[in-house]
Structure formats: structure tokens, C-alpha cells
Design a protein around this nucleic acid. Structure first.
Lengths: 351, 351
DNA sequence: TACCATTGCGCAAACGATTGCGGAAATCGT
DNA sequence: ACGATTTCCGCAATCGTTTGCGCAATGGTA
């Protein structure tokens, strides 16, 4: 009705070849154990190729209950961290024959719930969730959709969920050790969202390791932040507002973007980096090696994380009702990358 | 079959209320001119709310031929430019009740064609294409899908296509004028893909304006590049390999990422920026204001572009077969943002 | 020739919604 | 109280596939 020539349907092929539609379906899908005369199959395939027949996915999906579409929920796609994660996910899922529906939540429960409502209406086979926040009641809606899902980068409240994350605790400890080894004693943190397991775990481990090393993290040197450059600016502004003797000599930022925002404000305030102030980021996005000074940070295997999560989800789609064994909960190792934004506390001090 | 309790269907509601499924459909869709007893409608709506009924989108889409899904094709989502564009698109389409299927093409014709094949199978209502490349034969597949589409950021070969782009010609001219005004005479360009209308148009206008100003662009100072930091590194390396007297005093990079890569290499080679070398980027991604030195660039209204393109596509979806009038081809203005990466040619020169 | 296996393919019922049409019931005017 | 309208809603077809079941040939064996 809508175009000049309607789309060619299975039924049309059947009529032209002179067989029943079901036969065409079997010929095209090469169903296992399809008892079908090679000659007929050949005639059908030839005509299909010639007419450029493409099966209607909607109809197929309605019947088979599988769409080969995956929903991916991320907080903010303009954040390079999630963009790179998404890229890896898209590549891995495409290789497996799936496409991706992108959902941006802005870390907002209402947006999250709204997306979940849409996704639950049957257009996706499974979910990849990078937006989990602990204690978020809307996260509990997830299991009610009866869709397989895998959490990525952030864990949720439950212990029986599939997830692929990186070792945030180890990352937090590495940063603590690095800064203390450089001689820093007044150390600050610009925090991420307190309810994201990734940033919360980092902070907890950072704090614990500092305490172990005899340099406890002062509460007033932990300022609230976020995941953006603006958050870094605000956080650093708060730290600079402290009386001079209380100001930190080193700052651990929730992520690289926050670190970059913080460095901009510090420099604008006349501080020399890293001499007057050491800054550490997190994630090692490509940019971290480009800013001046180049950023000391913790490398998270972003591509690996996206790929593993995608593969896990797809595996779980195939073997429905697979039990949740250890292979479904993955923690990937991280690595400290020392660059030019951190330096020993006292210039000239040997150790 | 698959869960404990099956999903509740239209038919189930009908049975419980004691009406025909078609009545339930009419009650829920509030069809215009739906003659329906308020009491029945109320009973149906109440039960629907109580059971948390959600219509099956696949079935609905099969019948109505509309999925409320849009395909978005971008070259590389990990490039902040496209990530930000995509974010704007996602926001605008969500507001209109559409979701987005993300397709990464890596500027590769084979990937593009592959995605197009999938998208043509009926899961999307329309396409937003940010990957157009002139002379690309696979781009000609686009109209064969019989799907409405809008090109964004890059134009194609045809004049009768809907598009929303920014004024690349004006951008190229602005950069030319800026650099010449600063006194530069040996000016280089690290090019983007020659078949992307955006970068090609910029270069052509840049070259033309330079010629008008009496500072023609030397062919050997136009080096091939790309859109990534690596491309910027390679491009700058090529320029630095020139004998010293031929080296440029200013470089216009295809985009901000390329500029950042180029600056890193230049600095590593011992050049002081901007004193020894001025660098101009393009797009004004958020990062451009964060690198050191902060980057002179051309601001492209990215959010506006994504929003306008989305709205245009959605409008064209609604009024099918709308003629392609002027409102379907939009060119958005750009603006030069002067920061610290460009400086007058001769330090101390008054003008 | 009769019988059984096997192969090839058609039939029809799904999947879960939407929608033009028409019949029955309610309402109205006289 | 009766015909003409109007209002409400059911019927059945449709969207384009997939798939269990079973009928008719075909081929092989006794």
C-alpha cells in the first residue's frame, strides 16, 4: 500500500515457485532435519536471491519470540567511558548477530524506569545494564521484566545477579599506595555517585588502604562530585576554599573527566601541577594521555569488559534458565598507569 | 511457556472484563471517534492498570507497520563528536516516543551495507545517517529500503535528500581568516576523510579563502589524516618531517581530536605551543577547552544539529510522502572560538 | 503384489495485536 | 408505541512468519 511495489513476502515467493509458504520457510531457514528435495530448495533459494527477498523480522519475531535486539542502558553516552564501553558492546553483539537499542538514563531513576517500560514491551531479547545504583528501588524492576540481563561496570544490591565489573577495590588501593609512596599525607577525594558500586567501592578501598598505611583519609577532604568535568570543577573549588594549611597536596578524582575538570580549576587558581598538587584519575580513557600534564590513572579494561558482558548475556540467551554459576560473575583486573600528574610531595626530596 | 506466569495479553483482559478483544484495543488506544461506553472503558482501563498490562509491541508493529524505532548510523561512537550528537538524538527521539537502534560503521562500506540490510528487515521506521560519504556506492542503497531517512552532519551525492548539517564552508573560511590575521603565511592542513562532505567542504572553503587572502595553501602542506588522535599524530609527524624552512607555522586540523593528537606530537618534538606553532581544531567538543593549551576551534551546534535532524525525521514519518521542501535541508551556523592554541606569528609584533 | 519406511511437502493453527463493517440495543421524536 | 437515529460493541480478516502434524507419493523388501 505504501510504496509503489510492495515488499516481497514469503507468500509471494511460494506462489511464484509453486509451493506452499511453509516450504519456502523451511528452505530458507535450512531447519535441521528439514526433509526437502534439493531441487525444490535450489529453486526457492534462487528466486529468493533474485528477488532480493528479506524476511520480515517483525513477523518472525512475533512467532519465534526472539528479536535479536538487545537493550543497553548507560548513564550518559557523551561520557567517553561509556561511549567506549558501548562501542565494544556494539561490536561484540553485532558479531553475534544482534543489534543494540541505546538507552540513556542520566543516572535518573525516572528515565531508567521509563526505558525499562518500553523495553519490556517485547522488542528486546535481553538487557545490558551499566546504570545500576545500589538502593535504587527502580533497579528492582529489572527482574520483573522476565528478561535475561547482565550488569556491567556497576553491581547492584543482589548477590545472585550476573555481572562483569572491574576490580574497583584493587584500583582504590593502588591509588592509595601510589600517593602515600610519593610522600603525600593530606590527601583528598572528589567522589562519584555514592550509590554506584564502582565509585563507592573505589572510595571504600582507597580509604581502608590509606588507614592501613597510617594516613587516614580526613572526612572533610572527601567532597561530593559526580562523573563529569563540571563535577571536578566544583569539587576542586570546594577543596581550594579550605584554609591553606588544610588543603590537600594530592587529589584522587572519581574518574578521568573529574580529574580533568579539577586540574583546570587548580591551574586557574595558580597551582602548578604536579608540583603543588598531584592529581589521579580513574579509567584511563584515551584522553588521559593527552591532557597536560598527562594524567596518572587506573586503567580499566573497558573493551574487555564490554565484550565479556555481551558474550555472557548472549550465552545466557541461548541456554535459557541456565543456573547462575561462577562464570556469570566476573571481576577484571586493573592496573595503575603513572604519568605526569603525580609527583613526590617535596621537590628535591630524595625519597 | 517461558516464565512461570505468562505475560498478560489483550485477550486475557477481554475475557476477564467480558468483552471482545477489539473493544479492549479501542479502550486502550482511545481511538479517535471511538464510540465506547464510558463505563466499559473505565472497567477495562482499571483492569489494565491493575494487571499492569503492556501491549506487545511486536504484534502491534506487525499490524500497524510502525515500530517507533529509529536506526542511527554513526561512524564511530567512541568519537566524542558523534557521542554528543547521538546523545542529542536520543533525547529528542525519546521525547517523541521513539527509541534508537545504534549502528557503528567505522566508516566502512561493508559494515554500512550490513547494517542497512538488517535495518531494512522491518525493525525501524526511519533512519538517521551520520555516515554519508560522497561517491560511496553503498550510500545509494539507502533509498532502496523505502524508509524515510535524514542525513546529518554529512551530505551525500544527491540534491534531493533531506539533511541537517552545519556550515562547513563558513567554518573553513573563519579559520583561514583567523590564521592570516595572525600573520601566518606557511599554513598546513591535516585532512579528514576526503569523501565526507563535512571535512571536504571545510578544506575546500579554507583553501579558497586563503587564496583570496593572498596566502594560497601549498599542496605539500595538506597531509592526509582522518578523524582520530592517531590521525593527528601521523599528520603532524609528516609535517615535522619536512625540512625546517618549509615547516608550517600554523596547522588547521580536521577536527579537535586530530588537533589534540597533533599537538601532542608537536610538543614531544620540542615545539612550544602556540609560540612555535599555532593549531586550530574543529567542532569544539568539551575537551577542546580542557587541553593545554586550550584549543582554538570552530563551534558546531552539535546538540542543535542532532535535535533538528531527529525532529525532521519524525516529521517526515508522520506526514508520509511529504514533498522535500526547503525546510528539509538545513545548514546551521558555526562560530569561531579563539583560545590559547593560536598566537600571532611573530612574538612581540604589535599587530 | 502387498506392505512398510521413508521422503517431500501441504494444511492450518499459532504469535498478539488492529480495524472496517455491520448487527443489536438504546435513545429519541412524534 | 413505533420507526429513525445514534451508540456500543462483536465478528472476522489481517499483518508475515514459523512449525507440528499428517497425507500422498516413492522406493525397497519380501
Amino acid at each position: 500500500m505504501r510504496g509503489v511495489s510492495r515488499m516481497v513476502r514469503l507468500r509471494d515467493l511460494a506462489r511464484q515457485v509453486g509451493v506452499h509458504p511453509s516450504t519456502v520457510s523451511r528452505a530458507l531457514n535450512g531447519a535441521a532435519g528439514a526433509r526437502l528435495a534439493p531441487a525444490t530448495r535450489a529453486r526457492i533459494l534462487a528466486l529468493a536471491a533474485q528477488t532480493g527477498y528479506r524476511p520480515n523480522r517483525l513477523a518472525r519475531s512475533l512467532k519465534t519470540q526472539r528479536t535479536r535486539l538487545l537493550g543497553v542502558l548507560v548513564p550518559d553516552i557523551s561520557n567517553p567511558f561509556f561511549a567506549i564501553l558501548l562501542r565494544a558492546v556494539e561490536q561484540a553483539t553485532r558479531a553475534a548477530g544482534y543489534s543494540v537499542i541505546l538507552c540513556n538514563t542520566d543516572d535518573d531513576a525516572e528515565h531508567f524506569a521509563q526505558h525499562l517500560r518500553v523495553l519490556g514491551e517485547g522488542h528486546v531479547d535481553g538487557l545490558l545494564v551499566a546504570t545500576a545504583r545500589r538502593g535504587d528501588p527502580t533497579l528492582a524492576l529489572l527482574p520483573t521484566l522476565r528478561l535475561p540481563y547482565v550488569l556491567v561496570n556497576r553491581r547492584g544490591d543482589r548477590d545472585d545477579e550476573a555481572f562483569v565489573v572491574s576490580d574497583d577495590a584493587a584500583g582504590g588501593r593502588l591509588v592509595a599506595e601510589h600517593l602515600v609512596a610519593l610522600g603525600h599525607r593530606r590527601i583528598a577525594h572528589i567522589a562519584g555517585p555514592p550509590d554506584a558500586s564502582s565509585t563507592a567501592t573505589r572510595l571504600a578501598a582507597f580509604r581502608a588502604r590509606l588507614a592501613e598505611l597510617g594516613v587516614p583519609l580526613a572526612d572533610h577532604l572527601v567532597v561530593p562530585g559526580g562523573l563529569t568535568e563540571e563535577a571536578g570543577e566544583r569539587g576542586m573549588a570546594a577543596l581550594l576554599a579550605l584554609p591553606a594549611p588544610e588543603r590537600p597536596t594530592a587529589v584522587f578524582a572519581a574518574n578521568d573527566l573529574v580529574a580533568i575538570g579539577a586540574m583546570a580549576v587548580a591551574r586557574a587558581a595558580g597551582l602548578r601541577l604536579p608540583d603543588d598538587l598531584s592529581v589521579v584519575g580513574y579509567n584511563d580513557i584515551p584522553l588521559a594521555a593527552r591532557v597536560a600534564p598527562t594524567l596518572t590513572t587506573v586503567r580499566v579494561p573497558l573493551g574487555e569488559m564490554g565484550r565479556r558482558a555481551s558474550e555472557l548475556l548472549i550465552r545466557r540467551l541461548q541456554e535459557r534458565r541456565a543456573p547462575l554459576d561462577g562464570a556469570c560473575q566476573t571481576v577484571l583486573p586493573v592496573e595503575l598507569v603513572v604519568r605526569a600528574s603525580t609527583a613526590p610531595l617535596l621537590p628535591g626530596g630524595a625519597d
